[in-house]
Design a protein around this nucleic acid. Sequence first.
DNA 1: ATGAAAGCGCTAACAG
DNA 2: CTGTTAGCGCTTTCAT
Lengths: 350, 350
Amino acid sequence: MSRPTISDVARAAGVTKATVSHAYSGHRPISAATKARVFAAADALRWVPSSSARALAARRANAIGVVLRRDPAILASDTFFPAFIAGVEQTLAEREVALVLQVVGSRGAEERAYQAMAAGRADGVVVLDLHRADWRVPFLAGLGLPAVLLGAYEGETRLSCVRTDDAAPVRDLVAHLRERGHTRIAHVAGPLDYVHSYARARAYVRAVGSRALLREGDFTAGSGRALTADLLALRDRPTAILFANDTMAIAGTSYAQSRGLRVPEDLAVAGFDDDHLSAHLSPPLTSVSTDPARRGRVATARLLADVAGDDPRDVAVDCTALRLRASTDAPAPATARRTTPAPELEEEFR
Amino acid sequence: MSRPTISDVARAAGVTKATVSHAYSGHRPISAATKARVFAAADALRWVPSSSARALAARRANAIGVVLRRDPAILASDTFFPAFIAGVEQTLAEREVALVLQVVGSRGAEERAYQAMAAGRADGVVVLDLHRADWRVPFLAGLGLPAVLLGAYEGETRLSCVRTDDAAPVRDLVAHLRERGHTRIAHVAGPLDYVHSYARARAYVRAVGSRALLREGDFTAGSGRALTADLLALRDRPTAILFANDTMAIAGTSYAQSRGLRVPEDLAVAGFDDDHLSAHLSPPLTSVSTDPARRGRVATARLLADVAGDDPRDVAVDCTALRLRASTDAPAPATARRTTPAPELEEEFR
DNA sequence: ATGAAAGCGCTAACAG
DNA sequence: CTGTTAGCGCTTTCAT
């Protein structure tokens, strides 16, 4: 025996399919009495509406999509993603909307994934890992698929955008280090074509007035270690390093310690994203919490509004918070007081 | 103008819908010439088949589901989940199957989620966080929804199951510590109603011959810290602690260090799951890598086979590997040589 | 407040 | 090898 359909329920309740449908959707008034009969019948038959039939008829998937183009290895070590998804699901859980996730390996596969979403898999998508010039922005607009961009997109677009101020915490971190006497503060950034990496790097360059001690990593432990080695080999080595995420910061710390440097006495270290382990390290790692779950909730709520027909709009989320911990809590070593060359700001970061 | 349908493509190519459909599905032979015309027409019209229409007609969603019942905070700090998902997506990417994810907060919501999956959202599900007596096993069997259980389920079931030997690495770890002279080895377990926590705890109890130094945590840093404090306050404190995951191990290490104990000289510490940061800590943390991505691939392949009509079956994945690092690499402190009370094995763990 | 009926866009017999 | 024709199980006008 196969699963019951809406017709079975209608027959059992002595009404038509339309009545059953409306009893559930509330799209038109149904008397309390028949509504009760309908629900009772549905209950007795253990009827659950077919989501594919509903999607086809109503032209709405009751699902939103996320497509990620990432190396699985990087996905696996990402602290942002699961927390973000948790937030997405939190606001999804209240409505009966599902999340469709697709991880792809190539540009072609990514396009197909978005097309499939537009072709009925999902009613809208949230776009992560936003690039400064992101082809997906015009592409999605062309598909007519509701979308919200996560990150401070600077280009032209009519898509909704959930913005975060990544610059403020970087400025605060630099100020915090300056107060302790640091003058040679380095930054190990993430890939600079990401809007958030770029925003952090730009804030850093503006705050310190030079990009001499800026290095571009890729968020992996390996690059954190390598670039720390690079920086510490400098003639005037930095006395403080700001990393664009905690993974790189932790790898960098461990490298520095293996070279006999004490953290924070000889080298101050700060991360970004506030990994759940960071408060438990030795020394505890100064970081910036960015509340990915909250951004997930906000982005999802915004997307649901877009899907419901609202006009796209920008929303700013104030979700960063400094977590000052022991890894930056010592006076800068005496050598830090040496003068540094006059800052020269390059055009790109103005 | 709305998106083109299969009829538009058929008309443009001078064939019928059936031909278009079969040209894509390969469910029956189509001459190369017409196939080419069909593809050309589809291309020109930018036709993408509607997944909801396809799902309804073919009774197949081309999606698999995962429903998770978790506190978002725990999801966010879980190292297993993203890696597992990455593996799932790796094998999904090759076929054109999507992943539908639903995170729920209550038993009722969980049942509804599985029912929705069975009602057309997904063709099958993979079941995580398996409990020793898991209501979902009979429930899913009742729904007739293909499912694969991740973990060594010991009950009766006809569902596929992807098993891992969690006991062997625990035994090896205990042996490794004994070689270094440890006699008081503790274990901070995960919740014992999970099959994998239980398997690890049981292997530990069998290896050390006593459950006097067994504590039940909940995989969070907080519980790792609290239970470490508890163990270290014992009159005959343990000289080594095995934690059921790295998060608890790291929190425990940091607590021990804050109390003036050196790791590994005064206290040896090992984790489980091999978090990506663990090799970068000071000292690097001994752990057990469990290759969640591989298990994701295997479970997904198995599920796809079930969906395709194969008989359910058990598959064993040999995916654990000891990562011996500095946190366990020192001779046990002299005090470890004191005799310990005679082991008494409790019934439950036989 | 309820019924009747026409699709939504595709797949899969059934013919030829 | 290709065309015809029913549905898949809902939603949603249009009636009444």
